[in-house]
């Protein structure tokens, strides 16, 4: 047994990062405008009022939970669309919109303007609040 100090250092840094990371996941933040998002870019119709554009990938655990949550929340909202795209198959769009991790969910208004985005799995209230905030 040489020293336990390296273990302690790693665990303290990882713990601090873990708390920070978990707190920031799912929070809806406003990003600089990246321009309008159109039907042609995502291969699906926008919602009449709001579109939730979810970027997912194959090696992403919370993507499935996010999909199930958004499907559930938006099931009875006829003017809200949920569109899920595979980030890997849409790398050009991923770069243009600066998507860095999955899941990332963009909240778009009826014209396709990004109003906010959530990195990581959002909570039900966060999704509801973000939808309500869009006219």
């Amino acid at each position: 047994m040489e020293s336990l100090l390296p273990i302690a250092i790693v665990l303290v840094i990882a713990t601090a990062f873990g708390f920070w990371h978990n707190r920031s996941r799912g929070k809806v933040v406003v990003k600089a405008d990246k321009g309008l998002i159109t039907l042609a870019m995502i291969g699906a119709d926008l919602g009449a009022r709001v579109t939730l554009l979810q970027f997912s990938s194959a090696f992403c655990g919370p993507c499935r939970a996010t999909r199930l949550l958004i499907e559930d929340v938006t099931a009875k909202m006829s003017d809200v669309a949920h569109v899920e795209v595979d980030a890997e198959a849409n790398l050009e769009l991923v770069r243009k919109l600066d998507i860095r991790s999955t899941p990332t969910t963009l909240f778009l208004d009826s014209r396709g303007h990004e109003i906010g985005r959530a990195m990581g799995a959002p909570k039900r209230e966060q999704v509801l609040q973000a939808i309500a905030a869009i006219g």
């Binding site: 665990l11 990882a14 990062f17 978990n22 992403c60 655990g61 790398l91 991790s101």
Partner: peptide, 23 residues
């Protein structure tokens, strides 16, 4: 060690954070 600990203690998803950046 840091990655395994984050996975165990915080359910950290390595694929979510790394895969897209690698691509």
């Amino acid at each position: 060690l840091g990655a395994a600990f984050l996975n165990a203690a915080f359910n950290f998803c390595l694929g979510c954070e790394m895969y897209l950046l690698l691509l």
